[in-house]
Every structure is written in structure tokens, then in C-alpha cells.
Design a protein around this nucleic acid. Sequence first.
DNA 1: GTCTATAATTTGATAGAC
DNA 2: GTCTATCAAATTATAGAC
Lengths: 200, 200
Amino acid sequence: MHHDTRTAIIEAAASLFSDLGYSAVSMRDVANKVGVTPANLYHHFKGKDELIREALAHVFTHKTASLEALLNVNQDADEKLEAFVHWLVHLLAEDKIFCRLLVRELTDGDAGRLEYLSKTVFERPFTLVRSLASTRVRDGEDDFLAAVSIIGVVLGQVQLGAIVRHLPGGCSDHLDPDVITRHVIAALRECFKTTSIKDA
Amino acid sequence: MHHDTRTAIIEAAASLFSDLGYSAVSMRDVANKVGVTPANLYHHFKGKDELIREALAHVFTHKTASLEALLNVNQDADEKLEAFVHWLVHLLAEDKIFCRLLVRELTDGDAGRLEYLSKTVFERPFTLVRSLASTRVRDGEDDFLAAVSIIGVVLGQVQLGAIVRHLPGGCSDHLDPDVITRHVIAALRECFKTTSIKDA
DNA sequence: GTCTATAATTTGATAGAC
DNA sequence: GTCTATCAAATTATAGAC
């Protein structure tokens, strides 16, 4: 499977870090998961800090590549925004390691790591969503905040999924990525129904 | 200030846990912050697990009490929903310990702790928002998901605040609770503009 | 590149004096 | 109720054989 031990270590570490957090995972835990000795990890990485950085880079890099292709096809802004929501919901729902490390970095990351996260993960999608939103927000509204809300509502839906089954009326349908996607798209369609262009 | 050592320990622990996470904080760290010896902590609590549970209970209990009073005044559903958004944005923005522990529990909490979190924090506000939304969502739309989105968009805005200054166009205005509140309220107003009642 | 063995430090927790 | 002193286990990390 993994002919590259270094990669195997990084992927085991990313999985454990995403589940338990950085400080709750020891070098032993990672080594055991890979099937090597703890000392081996120090041959491939200077220490735990470097392993954390490499694991984050492995999970975050090129994560938005599939988005570019998706939005290069000929579509109007409405369709592109809907394609983005579909892409983001499914990305966060299906790659739990990515999703959980993302939330951990948003909560715990220092200034340097947050800037790295912004550049590698958020900058391209954010710029794109902001440009899609800017042509559709009402006059006087802030397209920056609109973009944050669009990404934020998806992130919030996924995170609150952890307690959906404990809330009155919650059922497994409310965890289905396709159901969430349709709901968010419908809500955004309402929200942007009257554009400044159409009003003019 | 704190005549009650036990309470001082709990509050120091909550502060440290919210900043660094449970496993990154040692009993020594908590004791040092309070100004007592580590052994003292084991007189007040059976162990670290109990201290974590007590800290969570201290931060989460009665957190939604101010909401009840806020919404008991005579207002229509629109005004109540806007009052809720204002309340939630300011709660999450101003009580960072509560906000960060909340996100940690959503990410890391086991089934038991998530159920506890749901009951103590989310159940009342959620039921309330859901009832406010249910009279206003379009026919065929899911009021459960609408409530999750309303809470989720606020949670997302606050969490993405960590990288706002690294995103193109981001400025400190976008972190101002009042600015965020106005933005979310305006967006929801658009989203709910056509209610099934008014259409009928 | 991987292992055995181990050093140095930190951590959760306890016993018992005051 | 708080302290001193301490332990056993776990953790990060290194040295050196294979």
C-alpha cells in the first residue's frame, strides 16, 4: 500500500490529529498506527512540531484544485454559486480529516498557521465566492461579509451536525450532504432574489 | 476577589482549556494560574476528567437564561428573530471562553458530552429559532434546517473571523459584532421576504 | 532506513504533615 | 483546606547498532 514510510507517517498523523487534537496524540500513537518504532519518526521529522506542519500541508495543499476546474465551465453566476455550495458541502462532509483539521486550525492556529491556512485553503474559494456575490448583493450591502456568510453557513451546518440527533426534530436526513446542499442553495436563491441589477 | 478556591480553580481551568484544549493543559498549569499547588486540585476534584466536566458545566449552565427574558417582550416574529441574532452574535463575540469551549465540544465531545451540550446550551435557543422560522419558510422548505442555518451562519461568521484579516478585502470592521449582526439580519430579511402566510 | 535502548522531562495522581 | 514530598507512568527526543 504505502511504499513511502514518510507519507504513511504523515497520513497516520493527520488522521490521529484530526480525531484527537495535536497534544492528545503522542509520537508513540502515530508510530503504532503506522507499525514502526517512535525513533523512526525522528529520522523523518525533526520533532512533533515539524510532523504537525507536514501533516497540515499534506491535507491542505491542492485541496481547492478541483474547484477551479468545476467553475471554468460556462455557467452564469447563479449556477456557479450553486456549484460552489455543492462542492464545499461535499468536501467538508466527505473528507472529515480535512474538515476537522480546518476547524482545529481556525480555533487553535497561531498567526503564522492561520495565514498559511488562509493562503492554501481559503483565498481562492473566498475570492471566487466574493466575486460571485458582489454582482448580486443589494446596494449598500457588504460583499465581503456575504462571502463569509456563504462559506460560514456551510461550515456551521456541518459543525452543528454533531448535535443534530440531539435536537428536537433532528433526523439523519439533516446530515445528508445532498439535503444540506439543496437547503443552502434554496436559501441563497431567496436571499439574492432581488439583485441591484434587476432592480435598476 | 475569589474567596472560593474551588470556583477559582474551575474558572482558571475553563480559561486555559478554552485557549489550549484539554490535553494541552496540565493540572500544574491550572494550579499555577490559581496560585495553589497541584495537590490542592485533587482535594476539590477526583481528577482531570471531573475538572473538565465541572468547567464545562460552569461555563455552559444558564448561558441561555438572558435569551428567555429578551424574547418575552411583545414583538412580532421578525423582531424576535432579529433580537436572537443580536443576542447570539454578541454572546459568541464577547464570551470567548464560552465560544471556544463550544466549538471544542462540537469537534471533540463524545456522545454523552454532546447530549449534555445540546440540552444545556442549544435546545432552548434552537426550539425558539425553529418556531420563529417555521412560520416564515416557504412551503416545502425544512424549518429544522432553516434553524440550523441561522445559528450556523452566526457560528461560521465568528469562526471565520480568525482569518478575516488574511483574506483579500478583510478589515477590522468585519469583526465588529454590530456590523456582523446588521449583515446577518439584512440577509435573513431577504431570505424570508416572501412568507407562506403573506403569500396566502 | 529501521531498530534497541535509554536519557531527560512532564504528567496525573497519592500519602501524610500542618 | 492547603501544603511538601514523592511516585509511577507517559512523553519527547537522542545515541548508536544493524
